[in-house]
Every structure is written in structure tokens, then in C-alpha cells.
């Protein structure tokens, strides 16, 4: 479903929703811009398969986390913009806690001492 230059596809898939929620917390955006933002912020290490982002966005919309509206910017073409809803903010908070917990556990395990053979 996803392709990633450096990260395992399972990790990319698991991080898709938190990434989208975090990006939309900064302000409304659209599919193409979200892909570009993630690419830029990850230094090209996370690369979503373009067509697969949209089903995720639609699922998040069905979940009530984000809402969408069609708008016609200066390009003259209609574009679908997504923004965060209240439930999305709650979901983001929950995901922040979960990912922080994982990061903190791994961080404490990956100290130099713990990685030295014979020391634990």
C-alpha cells in the first residue's frame, strides 16, 4: 500500500494517520500538499503512494476526525481541502501519547549501556 525509501512499510502505514492529523493541526490542506509536506519533512524518507493517501483521508473523514470542503483557489481548479475536527484533535492527542510512550521506551532501552553486550 505504501512505499518508503528507508522506513519499513508497516511503520509508514502505522504513522500515516498521526502524520495527517499533525499536519492538519497546523491548518487546512489538500492531498497533494500533504504528500509534499511529509516528503519534505522526512527528507524524502517517507514517500506515500499518492493514490493510497486518499482512501485514508476518506476513512478519517468517515471517522469524524477531519472534514472536507471543495474550494476554488487562484489556480481556477476545484480542490478538496481537509481540516481537523474536534474528534480529530482528541485522536491526535491520543496518538501523541502513544507514540511518545513508544519513543520513550525505545529511548531508554537504546542507551549506550543497554546496547553493550553483557550489560543490561
Amino acid at each position: 500500500m505504501y512505499s518508503a525509501a528507508m522506513l519499513a512499510k508497516e511503520l509508514v502505514a502505522a504513522s500515516t494517520e498521526p502524520l495527517i492529523l499533525s499536519l492538519l493541526a497546523r491548518g487546512e490542506s489538500y492531498g497533494y500538499a500533504l504528500i509534499q509536506d511529509v516528503k519534505r519533512l522526512s527528507g524524502d524518507k517517507i514517500e506515500w503512494t499518492d493514490g493510497m493517501l486518499y482512501p485514508v483521508l476518506h476513512r478519517m473523514e468517515q471517522n469524524g476526525w477531519i472534514k472536507a470542503r471543495w474550494d476554488e483557489p487562484e489556480t481556477g481548479r476545484k480542490r478538496k481541502y481537509y481540516s481537523l475536527k474536534k474528534d480529530g484533535q482528541k485522536a491526535l492527542k491520543q496518538k501523541q501519547e502513544q507514540w511518545s510512550m513508544v519513543a520513550s521506551v525505545l529511548g531508554s532501552l537504546w542507551t549506550d549501556d543497554a546496547l553493550t553486550p553483557g550489560k543490561a
Binding site: G31, H58, R77, K78, R79
Partner: peptide, 9 residues
């Protein structure tokens, strides 16, 4: 709607 969104992309 999906086709419009993907076309725009």
C-alpha cells in the same frame, strides 16, 4: 467526487 479529487492531484 473521488475522480475529481484524484484528477486534481
Amino acid at each position: 467526487s473521488v475522480l475529481n479529487e484524484l484528477s486534481e492531484h
